[in-house]
Design a protein around this nucleic acid. Structure first.
Lengths: 242, 242
DNA sequence: GCGTGTATATCGCCG
DNA sequence: CGGCGATGTACACGC
């Protein structure tokens, strides 16, 4: 056990990626507290301090500590103990290993860049490129500098053909009630700040029934976004991929 | 490569936990799309179909597929390919392995139960146990059956000493503006449904400045929750841990 | 560091 | 399964 502890410490010093498989119990104390009894799990420790405890099923780690945590390894009552301390917020994760089934350490090289598209940002770009194609009406973008207060910006702002301000809130998924009230906050703030008439449009690929009801009650509008058109207009992003 | 593919397939059939370390590139297509160029990573495949691709740093997997996905393994252009298909929403993850540094498979036993406490639920329990100690006023709980509609319930409902309904919305962290509007929706709904006077209280360990302003504007109240009192009152939950 | 909003969020609950 | 709200959410960005 003592020897294994030293080997793990050496891997941590080298900032390698460590995989430990073993029978362990886990305790967490911090913003909340948790306890997990004995069982066999996969423990992943990365060079940046990340610690993940994975059970044999489930996509999410049952316990974890994010990068920047300090991992220490020691022996207690003849058992190997991994302790990870996160400084802020102060949180502690303790893994007591009853039996180590496997211990591996890897020095990995990975400098590739990760690219993602098709997120909310690409819908915004498409609307800015062709407001009429996506929202079905001619709109002039307002300088991004126009803001709605110290915090909380609208996704997009336009002026319509009648000279009204138009606040557009974009959602990449089906929009629910909370998106409606988010839009309403922006519209109200802009009305208060300017005194002008302000329209609010919720743009999303779909809407929940209650969202549509709430929109009507609040005097707000909605536009269904055709994601195929978004992909066409933002294929510049996809070009990076091909 | 062919032999390795068959060994991996066999592990998947046995629903074991698989750890593959190797130089790979990764593509994802689904709700969004992503591409990750060549680099060395740790790939975790679980018996339930979960697939995780971890880079040498960062707490979150760079790509993933949740449980219920179907993993297939094949050889293409002399390279090992892992393909995971998630049925709904339809999403595809493709991992092309240029070099396999390690392949391990484990049959793991883990039947332990995971317990967590100190979350929002414990604040609710404390308020129900001792409304006066936490909220500073005498309140009678209303049957939990009283609901505010098909979806979206208030956290807690009481009747105060004057016979008014009191809706309490609880937050375990600092409450921001959106918590205020969430409470307002509940209060409005209950007013409409009953026609009675309804008070709304936001209970949290802290409040953002803009939340307090919004509360005042909407005629809603707030109470700072003393988390030490919550811990004292709910130490029954902690007893499970000791 | 605070406040706000996004996420391939994930997850659990209820109708 | 849809809709909604919580999460030890994590994460980025602006002030």
């Amino acid at each position: 056990v003592d020897d294994l502890a030293e080997r793990i410490r050496e891997s941590i010093r080298r900032r390698e990626v460590i995989v430990i498989v073993g029978d362990c119990e886990v305790e967490y104390r911090g913003r909340a507290s948790s306890r997990l009894g004995r069982g066999e799990r996969v423990i992943l420790i990365k060079g940046d301090g990340t610690v993940l405890v994975h059970r044999p099923s489930g996509a999410n780690p049952v316990n974890y500590q994010p990068e920047g945590s300090i991992v220490s390894v020691y022996e207690q009552d003849g058992r190997l103990v991994l302790r990870s301390l996160r400084p802020r917020p102060e949180e502690e994760l303790v893994i007591v290993l009853h039996r180590v089934l496997d211990f591996r350490s890897y020095r990995l090289e990975d400098t590739a860049t990760f690219k993602m598209w098709g997120d909310e940002e690409s819908i915004k770009r498409a609307i800015l490129l062709e407001p009429e194609a996506i929202l079905g009406e001619s709109l002039k973008p307002v300088e991004e500098e126009v803001r709605l207060g110290a915090a909380g910006y609208a996704d997009l702002m336009f002026v319509d053909e009648s000279g009204n301000y138009v606040v557009v809130e974009v959602k990449k998924d089906t929009a629910g009630v909370e998106a409606v009230y988010q839009l309403k906050r922006y519209v109200d703030r802009l009305r208060n700040a300017t005194g002008f008439r302000v329209r609010g449009i919720l743009a999303a690929p779909g809407f929940t029934r209650s969202a549509i009801i709430a929109l009507g009650k609040e005097g707000l509008e909605f536009r269904r976004v055709d994601m195929r058109k978004v992909y066409e207009l933002t294929r510049g992003g996809i070009a990076n991929f091909l």
